[in-house]
Nucleic acid binder design. Structure first.
Lengths: 233, 233
DNA sequence: TGAATAGTGTCTATGAGACACTATTTG
DNA sequence: CAAATAGTGTCTCATAGACACTATTCA
């Protein structure tokens, strides 16, 4: 059983946490520690770290733990994004990370204590303003592309909404992520046909015609539509 | 830098290798070694194994190496499937595997020497007949579901075809994977509009009207269609 | 000529895009 | 009433499904 004596790669889990804040898609970043020997000291990075073989039953539990530690959110939409592993992505040696991406409602999130070492960063194009540690820019880009692509044919944005929301609210989230306007009529038809949301007996008041409030139906699996939204032009 | 002293999970890569053989979707399995201490001795398993930090530059290179070792195929369609990691999937300890799935043309494949320890197994339902080592049944099932799902809206089956094939050949492969018939007319319209294949100046002869032979155009990226095939009924 | 499979055409159904039109609120 | 946004209706377009019809080979 020579195999167990082989050198083992480092194993980490990283989580891309998305929310809509101030009407903009944003992701959580954390500052790398500055202790001696830590690579990418003081740089921004995706929340994550080593699998703790004592605490983490499996990869998903590890991702949920890390997400909960940073945001306090307990039951997010969480999807495996992929894995990145190579001899040179971590200066400490061969390492592989298992990346997840998560969608949470922006509102109830309370980031950790000090708050100087964790923050929300708006997604501009495919990424964020600061340079990121490791290959986290690649991972974040993959998450953004995956989210954008899936928004074309799924109900994923529903997981970014507060408990009660209007159809125009939901459409604005779709449009924010896709970066283009959608047809109101087709959008409403699609969403209402999806058996995804149900009206609550309330209206959103404003300086104009009130809008019907909806909430997600209890069954929480995302809906897959048979067509994408057709691209403009 | 305490972190590097943590116990590290085992890191493996496994590959689900699909081909159409005898008109049936099949996958490659290998026999587990029987040396003392090897878990799941003598059982069938997906081809794969530990990342070799000396030889493998990154995860994909590791997957390509394992695939090449088993099939001789050098440039397959290869896609990351996901990762599976937990404290109990391997009796030797916490382990995580990075799973890939691959589509290759059935024909040119020559399985290794002895051939008693490696073979093709038809996919029945979501899996194969024999029991599999580790959680490989779950991984194989995920691969089959991913493939079936993508066949609804992509040109992935093109990677299962020999260099020259007819449109009816391609349609049969789609139907084999989906397990239902497709409309000939809609199928041809979709494929020909995809700018994916080009006719060669030959016909497939038979006891009936000959069929135009096509080959894949040089650009090899898969095509994503804006709609799924609609389900029957 | 008939069997068999390749390939085309026509008609319908679905759901999106365009966009106008109506509805309901506040100021 | 005007402004503003919510919500509906109507028409067109693209593409899939149904299915019939034509085309071309061999025995």
């Amino acid at each position: 059983m020579e195999s167990l004596a082989f050198p083992r790669p480092l194993t980490t889990v990283d989580v891309v946490i998305f929310a809509i804040l101030d009407g903009v898609l944003q992701a959580v970043l954390v500052r790398r520690p500055t202790e001696k020997g830590e690579p990418f000291a003081d740089m921004w990075a995706l929340p994550g770290g080593f699998v703790d073989v004592e605490r983490d039953q499996d990869l998903k539990a590890c991702a949920i733990r890390k997400l909960h530690e940073k945001t306090g959110v307990a039951s997010p939409y969480l999807e495996q994004l992929g894995s990145w592993g190579s001899h040179n992505r971590d200066p400490r040696g061969w390492s592989a990370t298992h990346a997840y991406f998560s969608l949470i409602p922006g509102k109830p999130v309370v980031l950790e204590k000090g708050a100087a070492d964790v923050g929300w960063f708006p997604i501009i194009g495919n990424s964020v303003a600061p340079k990121l540690a490791f290959d986290h820019r690649d991972i974040l880009k993959a998450a953004v592309l995956r989210l954008r692509n899936k928004v074309e044919y799924t109900s994923l944005p529903a997981y970014l909404m507060p408990p009660e929301f209007t159809l125009p609210d939901l459409q604005r989230v779709y449009e924010t992520i896709l970066g283009r306007p959608l047809e109101k009529s087709a959008f409403r038809t699609r969403m209402l046909a999806a058996d995804l949301i149900e009206p609550v007996a309330k209206m959103r008041k404003g300086p104009n015609r009130p809008a019907q409030l909806y909430r997600l139906k209890s069954a929480t699996a995302p809906v897959y539509f048979a067509r994408t939204f057709n691209p403009p032009r």
